[in-house]
């Protein structure tokens, strides 16, 4: 059973549909007991970093997510990945979960002005370090991104990147090998995304 953390942000329809489509049991929950009983956890997220952290804290799930990350595979998607880092400077400085060293910065500050922000659309995911998460993937597969901020100062943890005026952190993993983050949306990345989700279900 995969538990998708429900802390009041984001549209979870596609995520749960895609997990079910590849034959995985999943539930959307904010219940601590259900999260503790699940085999693995997905932390979704859209919107602003500060709001999302505040909601996670208010729902009493911040510590739960930190505890879970030590004992079972955890996948953060999009903003859910950004929350895994130490901090973000989206609309002021905000502390993250601190599960993976690094920080989240605006793309606009580091890329050419002619490039549009958000970085929205299909981009190639280049594998920079091999990992079981790529069990069913090839190098350079197309994945779908929608984001205006990206993770930096985390090079030791990067498994996959995409180029968009700067090298965008696409896929990260913690030292423990249990915590993954995907900046792109695997649930919106067609077959390539479904294969990454399948690999996560086998971590």
């Amino acid at each position: 059973m995969i538990a998708v953390v429900d802390y009041g942000v984001g549209n979870l329809f596609s995520l749960t549909s895609s997990l079910r489509f590849i034959g995985l049991d999943c539930m959307v929950t904010c219940n601590k007991k259900e999260l503790l009983n699940a085999e693995r956890i997905i932390l979704p997220g859209v919107g602003a970093f500060g709001d999302a952290m505040a909601k996670l804290r208010e729902s009493g799930l911040e510590d739960t997510v930190k505890e879970l990350a030590e004992v079972k595979p955890l996948l953060g998607i999009c903003l859910g990945m950004q929350l895994l880092f130490d901090k973000s400077c989206e609309h002021g400085e905000h502390k993250g979960l601190g599960l993976i060293p690094g920080e989240v910065s605006p793309l606009a500050a580091d890329i050419d002005l002619s490039l549009k922000v958000p970085h929205m659309g299909w981009n190639k995911l280049e594998i920079v370090r091999n990992d079981p998460i790529f069990k069913y993937s090839d190098n350079g597969e197309w994945v779908y991104y929608v984001h205006s901020y990206y993770a930096k100062k985390c090079s030791d943890y990067i498994l996959g990147v995409s180029e968009y005026g700067v090298t965008v952190t696409g896929l990260v993993r913690s030292d423990s090998g249990m915590i993954y983050g995907m900046q792109f949306h695997p649930e919106k990345s067609g077959e390539a995304g479904l294969r990454l989700l399948k690999a996560f279900s086998e971590i």
């Binding site: 329809f13 895609s18 079910r20 779908y144 649930e187 919106k188 067609g190 077959e191 995304g193």
Partner: peptide, 11 residues
Amino acid sequence: LRAVASQIFIP
């Protein structure tokens, strides 16, 4: 819409 969205995994 639901029927389409539950089977199609592109935006």
